[in-house]
Write a protein that binds this DNA or RNA. Structure first.
Ligand SMILES: [Zn+2]
Ligand SMILES: [Zn+2]
Ligand SMILES: [Zn+2]
Ligand SMILES: [Zn+2]
Lengths: 165, 165
DNA sequence: AATTGAAATGTTATATTATAACATTTACAC
DNA sequence: GTGTAAATGTTATAATATAACATTTCAATT
């Protein structure tokens, strides 16, 4: 359960992050091809920036990074459109509690993810396959609530940062 | 399990909401007294506005309501300070996915709440005592993550709205 | 009752995040 | 190559939230 893959939520472990990046980009190409969606250079660039680390980035962070990298100025709408696309294709998540965006690490499903957010170093891991969804499902059924999507954001300290205390 | 109480998350059921309001305000008085915190008229007014329904309100909604009710103009900072206080005393929750605030319905603990949000009528119920926290706790231990607080927001359709489809 | 220090509120300005509306360019199917 | 839809550019603005400092209110102490 700890093979090196961005899909295993290894953000809190020491790892060769270039592999995360490579895999994420490869997945993006593949996914977009399947969906007949266009991973344009701009969208790809945004995805690359998001994958520079496991720390979520705000839209204006991305904007600044893009504008420093090239000469031409880009406007917020451009970033938000790229982010909309990446979310729609399941390549990126928005973390509501941070107003920030992070690459999707999930193997199977982009939905019903659970995020552990380190409040100190800001790194995030994405937990897949936890039992939360099924519990919520049960609970929703009891309440006669038709559950469509959930977002679970857990704040705390990652292994590194908790020992630094 | 369905006695009338705002503390039972009955937002999706027909109920006499004035009882919710009364109980919420009574709890607020009691809680603030215990904590030696001051439930000033302004803070109380904000809490009353939030409890007017089970639909979360944005800070600027509250601002507008306050400013229409009285003559003197109030600035955003005032609202946000009241909201900060109400959150700190555990009387109000902020729903990150909505940028909005809702009265706390929890019996015991203000923490680790789970919200079911109707995407159509906007009403929200707060689920307490579900098993999510313990699962997250287990999952966090496995990941060596020291979990401090979680927020779970589930979007879907309430019983009323799902039949209206 | 006057003093006083902390808490609460007022006030002004500004930061941060996100979207609307319309023009232009680009890529692809035909 | 032409037409069309998608993508991007551009400008303006909406929506949410906070910073910084002045003033007022409250309650404890003298
Ligand atoms: Zn990595
Ligand atoms: Zn950390
Ligand atoms: Zn009610
Ligand atoms: Zn509803």
């Amino acid at each position: 359960m700890s093979k090196h893959s961005p899909l295993n939520s290894i953000a809190f472990q020491n790892h060769d992050h270039s592999i995360c990046i490579d895999q994420a980009l490869a997945l993006a190409e593949q996914r977009c091809h399947q969906l007949h969606a266009r991973l344009t250079p701009q969208r790809k660039r945004v995805l690359e920036l998001i994958w520079q680390s496991h720390k979520p980035l705000g839209a204006y962070d991305l904007l600044e990074m893009l504008n420093q990298a090239s000469q031409k100025r880009i406007a917020p709408a451009t970033i938000y459109r790229a982010l909309d696309f990446l979310q729609a294709t399941g390549l990126v998540h928005r973390l509501a509690s941070l107003n920030a965006f992070t690459g999707c690490c999930a193997h199977d499903s982009h939905a019903d993810c659970c995020f552990f957010i380190c409040e100190q170093c800001r790194r995030v891991i994405e937990m897949e396959g936890n039992e939360v969804a099924s519990i919520i499902d049960k609970s929703a059924r009891q309440a006669n609530f038709s559950y469509q999507q959930l977002s679970l954001e857990v704040v705390g300290l990652c292994p590194d940062c908790r020992t630094d205390q």
